[in-house]
Simulated assay, not measured.
Amino acid sequence: MSVSLFKAGTVWHYRFQIDGKRVQRSTRETDRQRAQRLAEQAYRQAKLWARDGREIPTVRALVAQWIEIHSATASAAHVKVVETFGRLHLHDLGDVMIDELTTDRVELARVRHLETRAPVSANQWLKVLRLLCNWAVRRGVIPSVPFRVKALKVQKKPRATLPVRLTRAWLAAVDAHEGDRDGVRTAVRLMLGLGLRESEAITARWEWLDIECRTYTPGRTKGREADPLPVPEWLLDYLMPMRKPDGYVLQKRDGRPYRAGFTRSAMLAANQAVGAPHITAHRLRGTFATLLSRSGVPPQDIQRVLRHKNLTTTAAYLEVDMQTVVHGQARMAHSIGFGLPHQSSGAPVANSTPQTQQ
């Protein structure tokens, strides 16, 4: 059954039946052609969107639905990203039905976003919008994501890792910044020694530490894994004097857990104190992965320790050791037959022969 028009006075109305229910509305139009277009649009929307009596939401309503359903199961950080998207970054899309999110509309909204944000932020914005639309597809609200927009190409930036030569001084600077407060001091060692995320350090518990096997099994992880991690000797020695039978490893003096970002100020102060690069909780995890790689640990083993779902994610954590490249270049030059003696100017000269003193 298709939509039908009828006139009541000078105004055109439409009616149709879908999912066993009769729908009748006014177009508020006196012109038949405009009324016909409105009626056909309403019928198409109802036919596409009606699922068990539910109509498709606007983007703003979809954000609210996603948060309501996922707030109890998704991580707080994930929920915050979607909440921030809905609160600050809808860019005229808030009242648009998600079936009407055309490629043009989404690209124009991204242009608005780029007026005040960097390209990497625009890619994150697009990722959240796709997340919401794909969720609507899985629920059967719409048949497919209605737009096709590619992510922007972004210039990658060098990422900081904590230099080995500065590590002990950096830890001492963190300790000096925190004084007699053990929370941050212990957290940075858990992240450096086990590669824990900050959230995993916050939720660390003593009963998950197996002294006999010298392993620690994170019980609350991003991917819901529960894999035992070997605990290095230096970290075990640090933890033993404060060990308890159970409970949180990190606790404030009033017994409450720490909040996300609680290590940031101490890390930034330590960076400045010892001249380290911009080390944060995430880059401390990257340092852990990079040092394992430089020690000869295979990438697939690092992937398991970091608890990544695929090796591509792990590879993004591993920074290139340029000193290894320097040694490799020297070996290449030697095998080719290039001799690179240094003259008084300090500049290497290829294939030169030392002059015999007259």
Rank of each mutant, 00 (worst) to 15 (best):
A204R: 04
A330T: 13
L229K: 02
L236F: 07
S144F: 10
T167V: 09
M332K: 07
V184A: 10
R285C: 05
R51G: 14
N123W: 00
L250K: 00
E233N: 14
R28W: 02
H13E: 09
T30I: 11
D175Y: 08
H334I: 10
Y317T: 02
L239T: 05
H113I: 09
L162K: 00
L62K: 04
A46I: 10
A350V: 13
F6Q: 10
S199H: 06
S26M: 08
Q357K: 15
A72Y: 03
L318N: 04
T314R: 00
S71K: 15
A76L: 14
G286R: 08
K127R: 15
G247C: 00
H113D: 08
R117L: 06
K150R: 12
R34F: 10
V11G: 12
A77D: 11
G219P: 01
K309G: 02
M97L: 15
S4Y: 08
G275S: 12
A136G: 04
R189V: 04
R159E: 12
V231P: 01
T324H: 15
H177C: 07
A74I: 12
T221C: 05
M1D: 02
D210G: 08
G275D: 14
D92R: 12
G328I: 03
L292R: 03
V120Q: 10
R181V: 03
A122D: 01
R87E: 13
K7W: 06
L250H: 01
R165A: 14
F6G: 06
E100Y: 06
D237I: 03
A72W: 05
H70F: 05
H177S: 13
L250T: 01
A50W: 07
P257K: 04
I202Y: 00
F16S: 03
V96C: 08
P341M: 01
H70R: 07
T186V: 05
R159T: 11
R264A: 13
L235H: 09
S71I: 12
P341F: 03
D182E: 15
R205K: 13
F85W: 05
F85L: 03
T27G: 02
E225M: 03
D104Q: 08
K7D: 06
D95Q: 05
P57F: 02
R243C: 02
R243S: 11
F262Q: 04
I18S: 05
V184W: 01
T215D: 09
E212K: 15
S4C: 08
V11Y: 12
L340R: 08
I336V: 12
N271E: 04
V231H: 04
T102Q: 02
R37D: 14
M1N: 08
D180Y: 15
Q33R: 14
V145L: 02
D180N: 15
C213R: 15
T30R: 12
V164A: 13
R60Y: 04
P354I: 13
Q45P: 04
L132H: 05
S26N: 12
A201K: 00
E200P: 00
A136V: 01
M1V: 12
Q251E: 15
R285D: 05
Y248A: 11
V297L: 06
H70T: 06
V297F: 09
F16A: 09
L235W: 07
I56Q: 14
R256K: 13
T103D: 03
L239E: 03
R259M: 11
L209S: 10
A315H: 07
D246I: 04
P218F: 00
T103K: 01
E55G: 13
G255W: 02
